[in-house]
Design a protein around this nucleic acid. Sequence first.
DNA 1: GGTAATTGCTCTAGTAACTAGAGGTTCAAG
DNA 2: CTTGAACCTCTAGTTACTAGAGCAATTACC
Lengths: 156, 156
Amino acid sequence: MFSIGQLSRRTGVKVPTIRYYEDRGLLPQPERSSGNQRRYDEHTLKLLKFIRHTRQLGLPLEDVSELISLQEQSGPALSKAHEIALRQRDLLRERIEELQKLEAELERISNACTHPHLEAEHAGECAVLNGFSDHGSCEHAHRSCPVGRNLPRKTG
Amino acid sequence: MFSIGQLSRRTGVKVPTIRYYEDRGLLPQPERSSGNQRRYDEHTLKLLKFIRHTRQLGLPLEDVSELISLQEQSGPALSKAHEIALRQRDLLRERIEELQKLEAELERISNACTHPHLEAEHAGECAVLNGFSDHGSCEHAHRSCPVGRNLPRKTG
DNA sequence: GGTAATTGCTCTAGTAACTAGAGGTTCAAG
DNA sequence: CTTGAACCTCTAGTTACTAGAGCAATTACC
């Protein structure tokens, strides 16, 4: 039986975030001390590590929730879990590709300013700023937004 | 002089988003028709295209804002713009590396379920679910959160 | 046993970058 | 001159947290 602070230290998940997960129903309501403080056991520790890991993999809490309930079942549930993993992998692949294109473009833009003599730099205009606005000189189309939602924020 | 809907169609930025940018001070308050409807010119069209592009590159609105004000200046402002581009490129590089590690891990996890006979699958436990919780079998550490904030959402 | 520091509690509000909806007005076509 | 699409403002919701207020419980030390 340990406190929320200990749970936090042992998982790397911040205290308010643990309470948030409880609110969202991802973690069960824990036992309480005589003074109403949360008391956790090893099972919850495992569960929270699971949640942290899936979040690091980019799964939205909704999917994490689903995976947790799948864990209590068997049979057809298993293929669903597989499906979630595959879907996430594909999303990630797409995102990586898009980001690589963007990286190349940022490279192009900042090079333009590192070597201003190689570029036409009339009337005090900066190639970086032009690069940001000028999409014509960017050979690849990136119409759709390259990055997804549902991604975890920077954490410790 | 064109309406907000036309501006939206010509830039791919949704109408409420345009109004939101105006609220945030990224776009100037436009002229209005006699009936109080927004009327735009080519200059705002250019500016909005600039904003859209920088957003696609993953710059937060705060940086976009800064770049816009830099555009009105010259001299030392230019090196600041360069700095922003470089910083963003570096962030992107880090993110790509992290995501590639995660992709490999998801690959591992879903393969575990595709070839269940290759894995010990005792008592109806699915390797996908195990893969999600078991961080020990993941050779690389991904302590910090791999993905950043400030990224644009999915847009048409 | 007393006291102080730390940790915990609940609750509300804030973050980024939008998106959706209510309820009303204006514009352009026929 | 009517109709329907597009526009207006305003508020509230989204995701996954984070920060803070104001108070209670626990732990450490003397």
